[in-house]
């Protein structure tokens, strides 16, 4: 039982980690939390389910190709990721960038506004009912995990390694670091903020789209499905320290395991409340987060 709780808690934490990393990346550019991020995750889930179903129907009735399932899943994934990236870049370019200098409170209200509008639009278009994917999943015997979950884990590990390499070894990464730790100084040194901002938003969209696809296959999708993930990921970001990606990931996994044990030994309602209480206590004790790295300011 203990091992199972740890195992499923770990995988639950991976989902939270993907969203948290998305939050943390955007935070470092906007210097505020983008609350509409999880709605873009929901959007990508919808795009995947609809496109996968449509393509499967199209291939089965007209093209008579082999591996219908695999082709439709791959094309569905591609469309979902692309549409999520395009939507994110549009929001970044036409909404966030023009108001970026107007202050954190304006950005927070705007991201809330986008979130509300997106949820309303998805409710109107897709209704509030849960839409489920037609994909039949089979777990790996003896392991009790779906291949999808192993893929998501591999993706999460790869993206963390790649992000780490980018941040440490490339000029782009150094520019991000410069923006994170001294925004004004970075602008003074003519770092191309707009370009970096678009790239970071694009990466976050890619990560979030993967988690939206996996979520839609696993549980189905409804307009406000992202709210729960938003709260957990927000907690993980605050516990881990928003400026530390590894800290955020570790905090997310710990949170996933904690929630798993909480659900099992208390109830889902109690474990959710406990999570928020622990967050408040941690913020009181260590407001900068558990894994905050002290930076020597020159």
């Amino acid at each position: 039982m203990l091992f199972d709780l740890l195992k499923y808690g770990f995988f639950n934490g991976i989902y939270i980690a993907l969203v948290s990393v998305g939050f943390a990346l955007i935070f470092n550019i906007l210097r505020t939390i983008d609350f509409s991020l999880t709605d873009r995750m929901t959007f990508s889930g919808y795009v995947f389910i609809i496109s996968e179903k449509y393509i499967k129907g199209l291939i089965s009735s007209h093209l008579q190709l082999p591996f219908v399932e695999i082709i439709s899943i791959l094309v569905g994934c591609l469309l979902s990721i692309l549409s999520c990236i395009i939507l994110t870049l549009i929001i970044e370019k036409y909404i966030f960038t023009p108001i970026k200098e107007k202050g954190t409170s304006i950005l927070i209200i705007t991201s809330f506004g986008i979130s509300v509008i997106m949820q309303s639009l998805m409710s109107i278009i897709f209704t509030n009912s849960t839409i489920v994917s037609s994909i039949q999943e089979y777990s790996i015997p003896g392991i009790g995990l779906y291949p999808r979950e192993i893929l998501v884990l591999s993706f999460a590990v790869t993206i963390m390694i790649v992000l780490n390499l980018i941040i440490k070894k490339t000029l782009f990464g150094k520019s991000i670091n410069a923006l994170v730790f001294n925004y004004e100084l970075a602008i003074f040194h003519k770092i191309p903020v707009k370009k970096i901002s678009s790239l970071v938003f694009g990466i976050s969209a890619f990560i979030i789209a993967i988690s939206g696809i996996s979520l839609s296959v696993g549980f189905g999708i409804y307009p406000n499905i992202g709210n729960k993930y938003m709260i957990y990921s927000f907690c993980a970001c605050l516990i881990g320290g928003l400026k530390n990606l590894y800290g955020t990931v570790i905090a997310s996994i710990l949170l996933g395991v904690f929630l798993q044990f909480g659900d099992c030994f208390t109830s889902p309602i109690v474990s959710e409340s406990l999570t928020l209480i622990i967050l408040l206590v941690l913020l009181y004790i260590k407001p900068e987060g558990l894994f905050f790295e002290k930076i020597r300011v020159i």
Partner: peptide, 11 residues
């Protein structure tokens, strides 16, 4: 709308 039932099933 509970999504995760893994802990309940484990229990």
């Amino acid at each position: 709308n509970q999504l995760n039932f893994s802990s309940i099933v484990t229990k």
